[in-house]
Amino acid sequence: MKILVCISHVPDTTSKINFADNNTAFDTAGVQFVINPYDEFGLTRALWIKEKQGGTVTVANVGTNVTDPTLRKALAIGADDAIRIDAEPTDAFFVAKQIAALVEENGYDLVICGQESIDYNGGQVPGLVAALLNWPFASPCTGLELDGTNATITREIDGGKEISKATLPIVIGGKKGLVEEKDLRIPNMRGIMTARTKPLLVRPAVDAEKRTTAVEYSKPEPKAAVKLIDKDNVEELVKLLHEEAKVI
């Protein structure tokens, strides 16, 4: 079983977001980067599959060398090897083409992505990869059980969940539920030491178009100051919700 876990390198969840170059770029100054939280659930699930059925877990990222520490962290958590495709990941289609090319070359059985990256919230790469490969796709995936090459997949649908079957290979866009929060693996000292000697291969990007360009960044309008209402006068709140906010 060869598993590929796609890792996106994103600002820590507590980051303040600012823009640079006259609002044409995301300002990375002072920002701490982490493994995309959704990908962490997928990575732990991949390690569980390996421990149960045998195989290898490779992590991959399309990015410049600034993402190497993120890949090293994934190695410290337990991935066997890492591949970085050396390019700026500015367009989802371009990124998906890189991952699809890697999959075709190395022949993975299972590609695990997160449902979306918490920076641009695109939610595009996993579906594009699946479509490029013509593999079955499931997202947002909250459960994945394998019995050999037979997969049972749970995904969220609006107001419920759907349970499906598929035969590997498949691509999933995962989230919490693949494993629980308490099960997430974190790097221990031994993991960090061995990560230093695990392979992190850098390869050039394949040719692919960029179908979109981010042209301008901005921030949402700040909220006006809160209107505080006395706890003994909740009728006032109901009135404001009806007359002012017009939501009830």
């Binding site: 920076d119 178009e209 179908r211 981010a214």
Partner: peptide
Amino acid sequence: LTVLRSAFSSKGLVKYQSNA
């Protein structure tokens, strides 16, 4: 085609232009 989209978990907005 140029469309405003939400990003950075609602902390930012980005205008995207299509090249297709």
